[in-house]
């Protein structure tokens, strides 16, 4: 699953998949603006068939919290 998360992030943020690790966040990725954030959320939802709750979306600003949120929602 974490590979797929990385892949989606790479596709949406237009960065190399190998560059995505636990240090990846909105601060480290130049292209990660609010539009890309929205696309990233929608792309992850498409891919995993999940829906992020409203209040969680603004906090999903780095690889680690995205991976955890996807994991939690997938197993729910």
């Amino acid at each position: 699953m974490s590979d797929t998360v990385k892949q989606i992030m790479a596709q949406v943020l237009q960065v190399d998949v190998a560059s995505i690790d636990i240090s990846t966040s909105t601060d480290s990725v130049e292209s990660w603006d609010s539009l890309k954030h929205m696309q990233l959320i929608l792309a992850l939802e498409d891919e995993f068939g999940i829906q992020f709750p409203d209040e969680l979306i603004p906090d999903l600003l780095d690889y680690t919290s995205i991976k955890e949120a996807v994991g939690t929602l997938k197993s729910a």
Partner: peptide
């Protein structure tokens, strides 16, 4: 067009 990620990569390609 079915998925946003595939749409974005199709555009890139």
């Amino acid at each position: 067009l079915e998925r946003l990620a595939s749409l974005l990569s199709a555009i890139d390609a």
